[in-house]
Structure formats: C-alpha cells, structure tokens
Computed example of a mutant assay.
Amino acid sequence: MQAGAGFDTHGHRDMEIISYVLEGTIEHKDSEGNVQSLPAGEFQLMSAGKGIYHSEYNGSATDELRFLQIWIQPNEFGKEPGYQQKNFGRSSGITTVATPDGRDGTLQIKQDASLHQLILEPGTERSFEILEGRNLYVHQVQGTLQVGSSSLDAGDGAKVESETKVLLANRSSEKVTALLFDLP
C-alpha cells in the first residue's frame, strides 16, 4: 500500500480477520474504541462478531506498507466483536500465533484452527506434526521453502493432506518465513 493510502471506515460481520505486517505500519481505528499502530512483524486479530466498523491505512507519508490479511469464517456467529494484537518475535523455528483457546499467550481465534509463524535460517529444517483428521496449509511469505518434495516461493501456498508429519526445510542462503495453518 502506498504512503498515505488506506481503507476508509467500512463494516464487517462474523469474520475472523488476521493481519500480519511485512513492511511499514498499519494505523487501525474501529467502532469498539481501538486505535492502534501495527508495525512490521506484529499480528492483529479482529473478530468482527455481530458487526464492527473500522478503517486502516498506511500512516507514513514516505514508506510503503506491505501486509497479509487472512479471512477465516468463525465457528461462532453473532458474538461481541474483539480486537487482539501481539508481536511474537522473529525467533527461528515454529511459533504458535493463534489458537481456539488462546493458550500460552496466543491470539484467541473463534475457529477450530491454529496459526503458526515459521522462520528458518539458511540450511535448517523443522518437522511439523499433523494430528489425525487435520490438514496443514502453508503460505510462503519470504524466501524459498521446501515442503516435503515441493518448493514454495514467496506468495505460494500448499495444502498437506493425509500426512502425519511434514518436513519444512530452508535449502537456500536466505532466511525463510512462512505461515502454517493447522485446519480440520
């Protein structure tokens, strides 16, 4: 998003909206009284519930804003709106960001889903366990990630089904960042 650009006040209902800032800072304001700045590396979860109005924009006059916005239909409808924001750091490995119960300081999402941040240094790998009846969706954010036998570049996605474990590897010379969604 170009400097100074944004989305005027608009409404949403019954949706879990996750924003993840890659570069720059989002300025957020909503009808529940939340006025926040969301800098690069932070996650925001807005539960629209029975209805919320908000605006978001790039508050910088010079810097571009790049962010991902993920929309997930909730498993509870007509509930009170909510807002959560947190920086989970940039440590290598798998960091849990959102869970249905908000355990261990994660954002609490109204869905049977979990979101994880994956950061791999060059030449490293991690295994991700997939419980029976679950699936994994990988959204590649930065760098090139090996997901099993497939290679993902920034912007690519992959769904892993009918597996109990998947190997996630960085075979490149640059740091890799991806989002991992554990879904039914």
Rank of each mutant, 00 (worst) to 15 (best):
G11E: 13
I130Q: 09
R126T: 13
S114D: 09
I94L: 08
R13G: 06
M15G: 04
D112V: 02
A3L: 08
H139S: 09
G157H: 06
D63P: 01
S172I: 01
E163S: 14
E132N: 13
H28T: 07
G33V: 06
L145A: 07
L183N: 11
A98F: 02
N170Y: 05
I109F: 00
N34G: 12
V160A: 09
E174V: 05
N170F: 05
E121C: 10
E129F: 13
G143V: 00
N135T: 12
G105F: 04
S172Y: 02
R13M: 15
L115E: 07
A113L: 15
G24E: 03
V35R: 14
R103C: 08
I130F: 10
S47P: 04
I109W: 00
D8Q: 08
A154Y: 05
T95C: 05
L180E: 03
S151H: 09
H12A: 04
A3E: 06
G157C: 12
Q108E: 11
H54K: 01
A154C: 06
Q142W: 05
D104A: 08
E56H: 04
V166F: 03
T62Y: 02
G148K: 10
K79R: 12
G59H: 04
E125H: 15
T96N: 07
E16D: 02
E121F: 08
T62K: 00
P184I: 01
G155Q: 04
Q108H: 07
H28E: 07
R90Q: 13
D156R: 02
L183S: 13
L136F: 12
T124E: 13
D153P: 07
S127M: 12
E32G: 03
G105A: 10
G33L: 11
R103K: 15
T99C: 04
H116S: 15
V160D: 12
L180C: 03
G105L: 05
G155A: 02
L145T: 09
G24I: 11
A113P: 06
M1Y: 08
N58G: 08
N135M: 15
I26W: 01
Q140R: 09
E132H: 14
Y53P: 01
N34P: 04
G41N: 09
N58F: 05
G82H: 06
H12Q: 01
S127V: 05
E42T: 10
V35E: 15
L65K: 12
V160G: 07
Q69I: 00
G123S: 05
E174Q: 11
S151R: 10
